[in-house]
Lab assay of single mutants.
Amino acid sequence: LPHTAVCLVCGEAGKEDTVEEEEGKFNLMLMECSICNEIIHPGCLKIKESEGVVNDELPNCWECPKC
Rank of each mutant, 00 (worst) to 15 (best):
Glu38Ile: 09
Lys15Arg: 04
Lys15Thr: 07
Leu28Ile: 05
Cys10Gly: 06
Cys44Ser: 01
Leu8Phe: 09
Gly52Phe: 11
Cys44Pro: 01
Ile39Asp: 02
Glu57Met: 10
Asn27Val: 03
Cys36Met: 02
Glu20Ile: 02
Lys66Phe: 12
Gly14Ala: 04
Lys66Leu: 01
Trp62Glu: 03
Leu1Lys: 04
Pro42His: 12
Glu21Arg: 12
Glu20Ala: 10
Glu21Lys: 12
Leu45Pro: 03
Glu22Val: 10
Ser34Pro: 03
Thr4Val: 00
Glu16Asn: 02
Lys46Arg: 12
Gly11Phe: 10
Leu1Thr: 12
Asn37His: 13
Val19Gln: 14
His3Tyr: 05
Lys46Gln: 14
Lys46His: 03
His3Arg: 15
Lys66Gln: 03
Met29Gln: 08
Asp17Ala: 07
Glu12Pro: 03
Glu63Thr: 13
Asn37Glu: 12
Cys44Met: 01
Glu23Tyr: 04
Leu28Cys: 08
Cys61Ile: 05
Glu51His: 13
Lys15Cys: 02
Pro2Trp: 15
Glu22Trp: 05
Asp17Val: 09
Pro2Thr: 15
Val9Asp: 05
Lys25Phe: 02
Leu8Pro: 04
Leu45Val: 09
Pro59Thr: 11
Ile47Asn: 05
Leu1Arg: 07
His3Ala: 11
Ala13Asp: 08
Cys10Lys: 09
Val54Gly: 07
Glu57Arg: 10
Glu32Met: 14
Leu58Cys: 13
Cys44Ala: 01
Val54Asp: 09
Leu45Met: 12
Leu45His: 07
Gly43Cys: 04
Ile40Trp: 03
Gly14Met: 07
Glu38Cys: 05
Ile47Ser: 11
Glu12Trp: 06
Cys7Tyr: 00
Cys7Pro: 02
Cys10Asn: 06
Asp17His: 13
Glu63Tyr: 06
Phe26Cys: 03
Glu38Gln: 09
Glu23Val: 12
His41Trp: 00
Gly43Ala: 13
Asn37Tyr: 14
Lys15Trp: 12
Glu63Lys: 14
Lys15Ile: 05
Cys61Thr: 15
Gly52Thr: 09
Ile40Asp: 01
Cys36Ser: 00
Val53Ser: 12
Val53Gln: 14
Ala13Arg: 15
Lys66Pro: 10
Gly11Met: 05
Cys61Met: 09
Lys66Met: 04
Glu49Arg: 09
Thr4Asn: 07
Pro65Asp: 03
Glu51Tyr: 07
Glu16Gly: 08
Ala13Gly: 15
Thr4Pro: 00
Thr4Ile: 05
Gly14Cys: 00
Lys48Phe: 10
